[in-house]
């Protein structure tokens, strides 16, 4: 009982701080890539010549903190939207897309973006709840001549 309380306090303090810091860095980096569109269709602009095209990927595993998991556990009982998990998947997907953009180098556009999400590492949480989420973003980076 006592240790759960300590975990909750540590989790709340560090978790909130880390999430805020993560969002700050995501927003900062998203601004940098405003000029590079990411689209989910695969229509190629035939009016321009394409120098190269290659597959680019971005991958991240994010975990939520102890406090939020506890709150989510309570919410599961009453139903409704679980905002602490919503921010988790949002962070994971946006981070994955940013890593894909960072890998794409001097490409002009990312075509046919797909995002895969899965849960892994359940052994890290012995109670069997969602411990962490994996987001994998992939698409084709193209460079126009």
């Amino acid at each position: 009982m006592y240790e759960i309380l300590i975990f909750m306090i540590i989790g709340y303090g560090f978790g909130t701080y880390r999430e805020k810091r993560h969002y700050k860095s995501i927003k900062k980096r998203e601004k940098r890539f405003l000029k590079k569109p990411v689209v989910t269709f695969d229509k190629i602009d035939n009016s321009k010549n394409i120098t190269w095209a290659k597959l680019v990927t971005g991958n991240v595993v994010v975990s939520t903190d102890y406090f939020k998991r506890f709150i989510a556990g309570l919410k599961l009982f009453f139903g409704g939207s679980i905002s602490s998990y919503e921010s988790l998947v949002d962070r994971a997907r946006r981070e994955a897309i940013l890593r894909l953009l960072e890998e794409s180098g001097d490409a002009d556009k990312i075509l046919n973006l797909r995002i895969e999400t899965s849960t892994i590492g359940n052994s890290a949480n012995k109670k069997g709840g969602v411990a962490s989420i994996e987001a994998l973003a992939y698409g084709t980076a193209v460079k126009y001549a």
Partner: peptide, 26 residues
């Protein structure tokens, strides 16, 4: 590394060792 990821589960944030694992696997 799995044990360290377990500790990270308390404070949250990115699980670097799992990200690397999945990168290698991919």
């Amino acid at each position: 590394k799995d044990f360290l990821a377990g500790l990270k589960n308390i404070v949250g944030g990115e699980l670097k060792s799992y990200t690397d694992l999945l990168n290698e696997a991919r």
